[in-house]
């Protein structure tokens, strides 16, 4: 599995990382090396094996539906840029909501 420059661009796009200034070919090479190493898993037979996605599996009581207000001013004060108690971003042109 070779991680090509195009694939690096595609992954960087998904991850919203600007990698243009970096040594993209070195990154591609390092990722290829790691991913190649991972192909060792191809030889493992996992038919009928359940995946383990969680560290702890225990049934426990769920949260009660009770309101507990938080000092929201603290959150807004650690915000990068705000305006009239809103977070602000450059204009979004397309698509309300996902």
């Amino acid at each position: 599995m070779k991680i090509t420059g195009d694939l690096v661009d595609k992954i960087a796009g998904l991850a919203h990382l600007d990698v243009t200034k970096k040594n993209k070919s070195l990154l591609a090479e390092q990722l290829t090396q790691i991913v190649e190493h991972m192909r060792v898993l191809d030889q493992v037979d996992v038919s009928n094996v359940e995946p383990m996605f969680h560290g702890c599996i225990e049934t426990k009581p769920l949260r009660k539906d009770e309101v507990a207000p938080f000092e929201h001013e603290l959150i807004m004060s650690s915000a990068t840029v705000t305006q009239d108690n809103y977070f602000t971003v450059p204009s979004i042109i397309d698509g309300e909501n996902e």
């Binding site: 992954i11 970096k22 990154l27 990722l31 898993l41 094996v49």
Partner: peptide, 30 residues
């Protein structure tokens, strides 16, 4: 951190999830 974000994004992405992330979770069980 960037290298790992790239790697992690790759193993979850469409077309690679089964061969990497899901497979790894099964070997984790083993």
């Amino acid at each position: 951190v960037q290298r790992r974000i790239m790697l992690g994004t790759f193993v979850l992405s469409a077309g690679y999830y089964d061969a990497y992330f899901s497979k790894a979770a099964k070997v984790r069980t083993l």
